[in-house]
């Protein structure tokens, strides 16, 4: 809760700065503060760093252009999250349509397999690759499990906040959280033993 109130305070300061006309400063602060958050949300959906970067840019451009209309009924972070999810889902829909066109009507199921990237033995111990594997494993979880895990594990949000954001009951979120943690532990254990 301390973290959340601090965030709110900071957001308020940023928005006040923006209202005072210091647009450049406010915009820079918003992007700097939330770029990793938005990027990670996009990556969890599209599972590709380049596409996640493009979507992150799109999200910031849209949000910053509409910032003057932001009523502060939710937090800026929540707004960014929703825009990022919508843009990522739109991107996925577009990719499905493109895949259909390319395959001449033979639809390809884009549902991710719960697999682990195949790294060479030499690279296995590299920390960076373990981090990337971890992110990939998280990204390959079913949507609800993935989102509740990420918002709780990376963003330290309470179940009540996540419940409001995702529109799911707290009980359901806790169950999804447990299943997500169990699957991640299982997949990462397999990776670490190889």
């Amino acid at each position: 809760m301390v973290t959340l109130s601090l965030n709110l305070q900071n957001e308020k300061e940023i928005l006040e700065e923006f209202a005072r006309g210091n647009v450049e400063q406010a915009v820079n602060e918003i992007v700097r503060r939330y770029k990793n958050f938005v990027f990670l949300v996009a990556f969890r959906y599209v599972k590709n760093y380049d596409d996640a970067e493009d979507i992150t840019q799109e999200v910031f451009v849209e949000v910053l252009q509409k910032l003057k209309y932001f009523r502060q009924e939710s937090t800026l972070k929540t707004w960014l999250y929703r825009v990022a999810v919508n843009k990522s889902k739109n991107w996925l829909r577009k990719q499905k349509v493109l895949a259909l066109i390319r395959l001449g009507g033979k639809g390809e199921d884009n549902d991710p397999e719960f697999d682990i990237p195949d790294y060479s033995q030499d690279d296995k111990l590299e920390k960076k690759e373990m981090e990337e594997t971890f992110l990939q494993v998280v990204a390959n979880l079913p949507e609800k499990q993935r989102e509740v895990f990420s918002l709780r594990y990376f963003e330290h949000m309470s179940f009540e906040e996540i419940s409001k954001l995702l529109g799911t009951s707290v009980g359901g979120l806790k169950a999804n959280y447990f299943h997500a943690v169990r699957k991640i532990a299982s997949a990462m254990k397999q990776y670490l033993q190889e």
């Binding site: 992007v31 770029k35 990027f39 990670l40 970067e53 992150t56 920390k127 971890f134």
Partner: peptide
């Protein structure tokens, strides 16, 4: 021991 933020910072450094 992972530093996910560091990894993400690398990936997003050109975004601003």
């Amino acid at each position: 021991n992972m530093d996910i933020d560091r990894l993400l910072d690398k990936k997003t450094k050109y975004i601003p």
